[in-house]
Design a protein around this nucleic acid. Structure first.
Lengths: 198, 198
DNA sequence: CTGTATTATTCTAGTATTAGAATATCATAA
DNA sequence: TTATGATATTCTAATACTAGAATAATACAG
């Protein structure tokens, strides 16, 4: 069960929905802050969920517009949702951020360049935190679990923010010094002689 | 430039490497803590990078074993690497964690079940933090930028840990109460009557 | 000289996802 | 009646990645 499938399943669990409606709900709730579900993927995911037997399709005549294909959660779907939620809440997932790779390759930049880049990084985080907080406050009061979502997001953003500030301070102290190490190659103590082009 | 491509490019930048060697370095440095590069993908990625003109292939006779195809960074590659690193350090990337979706669907669980799941979540984080710290200490002293990587990872883990602890405390206070809200459906105020099966 | 392990690369086929165009139905305005 | 826009779904083709088997060269133990 992928992230996206679980998100769709969660929506259908609230009440029967058709594809286009799901798109609207995702948009209106600002769900794109915490999932990546493109419009183009919704029908694909609904199909997958149907094949898996987690949702059922029914046709519904509408007041206006074309006939809708409305999806309802099945018993198996409810169970799958529950399992998915338990799994999501049971095990923290590692997330692989580009910044880690950027840091691993810091030596390819001058200290100046690193400071410029990370300053921007910090500023974007500040904005993002402010944006989230504003959104939260504009919706007050929210149920506990929604508050938990906001708190979780903000906790991560603020942690990175503090880290960025500390690291920037450190970098400032050596602004004109270049990196304070020889890039020694960790790993591989094997030697190879007989080099030759071919 | 994806995460994985940037990571490979960074390794080749340190010194010319062949595919199998890259796998070994990734393994030895424990790089799988912060990137996801399967063995099966390395040659695929090297090919991509070669097509893009970022690395060049040369054959090298070896002391033992088969001839190696050694990849070297090109000028274009060095520039791409630099741009990639600047990009990675300039903009924090949102990362989409299953826990967010779990939280969004917390009402499908009882308070008890949520507490059980999140307790496990917390424990795994504790272990992960301890593991990382141990690895760091075992390598002391490390260059600044490696320390920055450890600090960044630990900052994120600890932030989630604190969040989990606070939320668990909160849940404990309402262990036998069920959720304190009606699940109201946010978004879509549209009505549809004329329902009918078909 | 035979079997096994190690080093090293390639190939095949599959999965998963996505963009974007195409299709279709109905309402409303011109 | 025709055009336009909103609603709603499907289709096509492509991309991106990955698992795992196949291949191959050499070393080394028995």
């Amino acid at each position: 069960m992928t992230n996206a499938e679980l998100a769709i399943l969660g929506l259908v669990a609230e009440r029967p929905l058709h594809g286009y409606e799901i798109e609207q709900v995702i948009e209106q709730r600002g769900m794109r802050d915490w999932t990546e579900i493109g419009f183009s993927s919704i029908y694909y995911l609904l199909n997958k969920l149907e094949k898996a037997g987690f949702v059922e399709r029914a046709l519904r005549a509408a007041e206006r517009g074309a006939v809708r294909k409305v999806y309802t959660l099945t018993e198996a779907g409810r169970e799958a949702l529950k399992n998915g939620v338990v799994a999501a809440l049971s095990t923290p997932q590692r997330c692989y951020l580009p910044i880690q790779i950027g840091l691993a390759n810091l030596p390819s930049l001058s200290t100046e360049e690193a400071i410029t880049a990370l300053t921007h990084y910090r500023d974007v985080l500040v904005q993002r935190a402010a944006g989230l907080r504003a959104k939260w406050e504009s919706q007050m009061p929210v149920p506990d679990f929604v508050a938990a979502m906001f708190e979780h997001s903000l906790a991560l953003i603020n942690a990175e923010l503090q880290w960025a500030r500390r690291f920037l301070e450190h970098l400032e102290t050596r602004r004109h010094q270049g990196w304070s190490f020889e890039t020694e190659f960790i790993g591989t103590d094997r030697k190879e002689s007989s080099d030759g082009e071919s």
